[in-house]
């Protein structure tokens, strides 16, 4: 490629990232969702299904309004987010150092690899019975489930991430006299970050599901609880409203937490492509 076309392309992408593109991007994002909602409204109207089976869009909006004005929405939301946040923070604090430490040693990582694979498979929901047994029904059991679901995925991916750092980079750091603590903060952790972000995403996915399931079973507040209460009384409008909230929350979590993290680190450092080795 010649220089002028390259420059033009760079200019184009720069412009593409401008205001105009955010607008079209938003259109491409919200347009299809709006179409989906419209299709839903039409389908319910034409088929005439009962509210008992599937609610109309307006019913769901009404349910959302009721949840909002009664304050139940914030009670449930607050409870769920607090549990998710605590569980995630605990998982980060415990899983990352552990995983990186394991990855730094060839022997330890070989030893823990099968154990971790086993644990990742079990993590989260399968622990609900034992968690409620150990911690009783309530907050602590739910937080334990979220922590548990994320911990293994994080540890496993942090370990793999460290193992994927090219030998030369580790050698370069060592040959400049890097101490253990510095090695952790400045080489191993950032080097493993692409894989850690993957782990975070997988872990959050498991943790989020674990949260909903645990709330259905083990508590008297939270989105999962609200969902299940509504099922008992066949309030399909509340059920769908809660589902929409859960979906929106997850998308927000992804957009506001994971995507910026990825943009600011992995993408900025050019570590996504295959050509960095």
């Amino acid at each position: 490629m010649t220089a002028p076309t390259a420059r033009r392309r760079a200019l184009l992408t720069a412009r593409r990232r401008g205001l105009l593109s955010t607008a079209t991007g938003a259109l491409w994002f919200f347009g299809p969702l709006a179409a989906l909602v419209a299709a839903w409204a039409v389908a319910v109207r034409v088929s005439g299904v009962e509210m008992r089976v599937f609610p109309q869009v307006t019913d769901v909006l009404g349910a959302l309004g009721d949840l909002w004005s009664s304050g139940d929405l914030f009670r449930h939301l607050g409870a769920s987010l607090r549990r998710a946040g605590l569980g995630m923070a605990l998982a980060l604090v415990t899983g990352l150092p552990f995983g990186v430490a394991l990855g730094a040693s060839r022997v330890l990582s070989a030893f823990f690899l099968p154990l971790l694979r086993f644990s990742v498979a079990l993590a989260g929901i399968a622990w609900i019975p034992i968690a409620t047994l150990w911690f009783g029904y309530g907050d602590r059991a739910v937080i334990f489930i979220v922590w548990n679901a994320m911990f293994f995925a994080l540890t496993y991916n942090a370990m793999l991430g460290v193992r994927q750092i090219p030998v030369e980079v580790l050698r370069a750091a060592r040959s400049m006299g890097t101490g253990r603590l510095r090695m952790f903060w400045e080489v191993l952790l950032p080097g493993a970050l692409p894989s850690i972000v993957t782990g975070l995403r997988v872990g959050l996915g498991y943790g989020w599901r674990g949260l909903v399931a645990a709330e259905i079973i083990a508590t008297n507040a939270g989105l999962g609880y609200a969902l299940f209460q509504a099922q008992k009384y066949f309030q399909t409008d509340v059920i769908i409203a809660s589902m929409v909230i859960i979906g929106v929350l997850w998308l927000l979590m992804d957009r506001l937490l994971l995507a910026p993290l990825e943009r600011r680190t992995v993408e900025r450092w050019g570590m996504t492509g295959a050509g960095d080795r």
């Binding site: 299809p32 969702l33 089976v53 989020w208 979906g247």
Partner: peptide, 25 residues
């Protein structure tokens, strides 16, 4: 492009959250 956000959204509504409505059905 049209289906991507819809897919993302359905993926985001955790499967377990579907359980209550499916039980209703």
């Amino acid at each position: 492009r049209a289906c991507w956000p819809i897919l993302l959204f359905f993926q985001a509504v955790a499967d377990i959250a579907w359980l209550p409505i499916v039980i209703v059905w």
